[in-house]
Design a protein around this nucleic acid. Structure first.
Lengths: 206, 206
DNA sequence: CTTTAATTTTGAACATTGTTCATTTATTAC
DNA sequence: GTAATAAATGAACAATGTTCAAAATTAAAG
């Protein structure tokens, strides 16, 4: 016996959704740093205070936008995994897919890592769990590539590879360093992952 | 015929230095995000407006703090290079040195990459140039390892290796992901760089 | 359908910031 | 010693996230 959603509950849900989409679009178009409570509520068609009846604060709202982004990224990576069964090829394509996603969704992707919780506040469990998806996609082909890897080794190797690929994509998209043309970057990243896997295999069979 | 520095110039220099040290200590102890103009000027012993007679704005002051940090990092890396002549060993020790610096100077090091210029304002030339030092330290042993590398290949490989090592250090020190004990991280990073070099050599001599 | 109670929405007010600028103070030049 | 110049001051301003008493809306009761 589930209760019918009341008119109040429907409106509340609608408000949350409007705010979420407004925040997402603002971040997408103008980046996280210029996100303003007043802009969001204007776009969402509610009063300034409305934001605080739907979400704890702006940080919390950004967390929900990041959740959407992370799930979109997950969907793309899973599709790539499904299309490339051979482990080495899959690892390379996952890296390329990560680069593509970061380029195509620059501001949303940056918000994923630029956003900092307030002093002393931890990232909530449910959002940490969403990050795990990234690692799973990498761990699967790695385990296939070397079934004798211990759980602990697999975990650390997975994180290292993710971090390395993320680092390359991240540095290349920052204006602190000289920008590299997208096409060239793609080639370099592919080559880099190939090196990495070769090095990994070489040190295994010795 | 150089002019004696006047009393005015001396005081101005002293003020700049006091503000710089105050900002540096604040960042070191509390991180970039809680840096406040009022705190800095109180610590430096001047009025709020004084900050704006010495520096354009807070961004500019942070840039100068980052410059100090970058030079401190440079000094450590150069010392490491001087103590390890063998190229593979040197690359590994540089990576370990980078990790050590990031751990020992967490907040100052984070500020190096967390700090964003205002919308549309570019990072000044003089500060971009300081970043080049990081790359030089990596490029030298790489060139020694393979003298036939073309300039362009050397540049891209250098940046990839820096970015990868930076990524691993960076991800490991974020609270978004599960923290890894320092000692373990050191081992993993070493192993990772070894893989990378092995992979690089393997694909060269084929 | 009215009336009352509960809930949500509102936006003015507040607190905290970075930055500016007229005024005051200190330094230099004559 | 006095006038000109430069620097330091801190009150005032603008931009921002957040709160909360009042108004508006929705649900429940009669």
């Amino acid at each position: 016996m589930k209760n019918e959603p009341t008119k109040r509950e429907l409106k509340k849900q609608e408000l949350k959704e409007n705010l979420l989409q407004a925040a997402k679009n603002r971040i997408k178009n103008n980046g996280l740093t210029s996100l303003r409570a007043r802009d969001i509520t204007t776009d969402a068609g509610c009063a300034l205070g409305g934001l605080y009846t739907a979400y704890d604060d702006i940080d919390n709202l950004v967390l929900h936008v990041n959740s959407i982004t992370l799930n979109a990224l997950g969907t793309e990576l899973k599709a790539i995994a499904a299309n490339h069964k051979e482990p080495v090829e899959r690892l390379i394509e996952l890296a390329r897919g990560y680069l593509k996603f970061a380029c195509d969704n620059h501001n949303l992707w940056s918000a994923l890592f630029d956003h900092k919780m307030a002093e002393g506040v931890a990232v909530p469990e449910w959002h940490l769990a969403e990050h795990a998806m990234l690692f799973e996609q990498i761990a699967m082909p790695l385990a296939q590539l070397n079934p004798e890897l211990h759980e602990a080794e697999l975990t650390t190797l997975t994180r290292s590879i993710f971090a390395a690929v993320h680092g390359i994509v991240s540095i290349s998209l920052q204006d602190r360093f000289i920008a590299v043309p997208r096409k060239e970057l793609d080639t370099q990243l592919t080559q880099f992952v190939e090196f990495l896997i070769k090095g990994f295999e070489a040190s295994r069979q010795q």
